[in-house]
Amino acid sequence: MPVVALRGVHAELGARPVLRGVDLAVRRGEVVALLGANGSGKSTAIRTLIGQVPATAGTVELFGTPRHRFRAWARVGYVPQRAGAAGGVPATVAETVASGRLARTRFGPFRAADRAAVHRALGLVGLADRAKDTVTALSGGQQQRVLIARALVSEPELLVMDEPLAGVDLASQEVLATTLRQLVASGASVLLVLHELGPLEPLIDRAVVLRDGRVVHDGPPPRTADGSLPYGHEHHHPHAGDGADSRGLPIR
């Protein structure tokens, strides 16, 4: 039974069709990268999975349950695409991460075990000593790590991440790669939207490439014409604007 299953999914933003029959499966313990140019529908596919964008046709399943009947949200950790991690009022790193724990506590009390989980999740992303700092005092990469800790604090079996490397410094990219490796070693599954594989490349089991809302590749991470991997470790630039296609992906 796949952890994530999208079958023939169509979705629209406004009246514009963005997904035109996407099939996507993530099996237990797998790390799947969702690649594609800007506007290819990869973020929409993720947002359809979590229910933020409704699917107009097709089926979406999480852990074998249709999404609209799925309730075990503590099994899913989600890292949204985000320029900043801040709202209109200051919040500390620990406060932000604690809201991820609501997947387990729901409307019940927040106990010592929950506080310990927050501390553990911050340790995982190397920010345990920043728990009491306000989120906006952190760098972009550290803020991204806060959002990842918020997703991990419910101890999920599936981690869904939308562009976790966008605007992330090299040190944070490596922390993220280490965190993912540990998570995968423990049997968790990962689905992540990427525009470059970067330091995560060795972790990726399978890549799904979208173009114009359709899957055009589903298999090993794509290679360039000369046979080298399109994403060398020297490509760590944090700018999202240049798109994946500039590195020779067969997506345009």
Binding site: R47, I50, W73, Y78, A91, S99, L102
Partner: peptide
Amino acid sequence: GLRRQLFAVAHDEEFARVTGL
């Protein structure tokens, strides 16, 4: 009574949805 839940929803609605709130 609902400060944590209201904080989560006001802070990041999209994320709050995935916590099942």
